[in-house]
């Protein structure tokens, strides 16, 4: 097992290295000049040249890349050219917002998707399966922004059940400790604010979780149906076990593997979806920050945040692969 883990970690290194080259060249090919962006209206040729020198932008590209790589290996992700704060600081401040949203969406997708998939598989001949199929078809066909705006209109504007946007009522102030709103409100001893934060979380989580919900439902249904046809399931039924016991002990235990893999794969999609969800719901997270950085030509923020996104994506894939190998020994020796 240890050998397998080492092999998988080593195989991620060239990808990260390749990614650093791609992002570096990508950013340096972007139109616009970071120095001019930094100076804004005050840009004069002399000042721009000075800033370019300070930022090292007057060096040959390979020197700049090597400097960038050295900094990266020391955990230095550069500074924003707009506000001059280290990228890592802003990222750390905003990342918990994205994690909170992503986890809530994942809980929604898994919590509903798996029971829904099992339910559909149990009623393949009935109308119930049809209804679940239609739900999952809508799930993968409705863009996050359409669903998000519709939820905002119906649930917030018309029914007044939940707030439209943001992470907390603007009149509430909570000291930032972890930047996870649900945790910070509890740390501040404010159960009312906790409930408010939870209410703010529901609509964005549903909008973001709709696609993974559809995919998890589909894969659970397919996986349960696959296992359902196995001989050992027939044997279990033939020896008179209750349907519930057959389901829990014989079907689900074997149907888990593909479902777990797909759940892991959804994390990348959720991070990407967070970009749009955060824009729709004015959610203070990394996704909206990246979009703003691209619009502001804030090069180092774009470069570093995409690299961190990719790093997280690879790390999650690695964890899923290792978990999969743990559950299924045949993988380790392949």
């Amino acid at each position: 097992m240890a050998k397998y883990i080492v092999r998988r970690i080593l195989s991620a290194i060239p990808v990260l290295f390749g990614l650093s080259i791609v992002l570096f060249s990508f950013i340096h090919l972007l139109p616009g000049d970071p120095a001019a962006a930094l100076l804004g209206q005050h840009a004069t040729p002399e000042l721009t040249a000075k800033i370019r020198q300070q930022l090292g932008l007057d060096q040959p590209l390979y020197v700049q890349y090597l400097q960038y790589l050295t900094q990266l290996l020391h955990g230095d992700l550069g500074k924003s050219v707009i506000n001059n704060r280290p990228v890592i600081t802003d990222f750390a401040n905003r990342f918990p917002g994205t994690v909170e949203l992503t986890l809530a969406a994942l809980v929604f997708a898994v919590g509903i998707g798996i029971p829904l998939g099992r339910f559909a598989a149990r009623h393949t001949q009935g109308w119930q399966d049809g209804v679940v199929t239609v739900i999952s078809l809508f799930g993968i066909s409705i863009p996050i922004f359409v669903l998000g705006l519709t939820l905002q209109y119906v649930v917030s504007v018309q029914l007044h059940w939940l707030p439209t946007s943001g992470r907390l009522d603007p009149r509430t102030t909570i000291p930032s400790v972890t930047n996870f709103m649900l945790i910070d409100t509890l740390l501040a001893g404010r159960p009312d604010a906790f409930v408010d934060a939870l209410r703010h979380l529901i609509l964005p989580a549903i909008a973001l979780g709709s696609i993974p919900l559809a995919i998890i439902t589909r894969i659970t249904r397919a996986s349960v149906l696959d296992v359902n046809n196995e001989d050992y399931v027939r044997t279990a039924r033939a020896k008179g076990l209750t349907e519930r016991r057959v389901d829990d002990r014989h079907i689900m235990r074997n149907a888990w593997l593909p479902v777990v893999t797909v759940i892991g794969l959804q994390v990348g999609g959720l991070l990407a979806g967070a970009v749009i969800t955060e824009t729709v719901f004015s959610w203070n997270g990394v996704g909206r920050w990246v979009v703003e950085a691209i619009q502001d030509h804030d090069y180092f923020v774009v470069q570093s945040s995409i690299l961190i996104f990719a790093f997280i994506f690879l790390a999650v894939n690695l964890i899923v692969d290792i978990g999969y190998a743990y559950l299924n020994p045949r993988i380790r020796y392949a």
Binding site: G268, G269, A272, V275, V290, V291, F309, A310, F313, L314
Partner: peptide
């Protein structure tokens, strides 16, 4: 490894 929409935005 780059989330799709981020790649497209970029």
């Amino acid at each position: 490894a780059i989330p799709g929409i981020l790649l497209a935005i970029g």
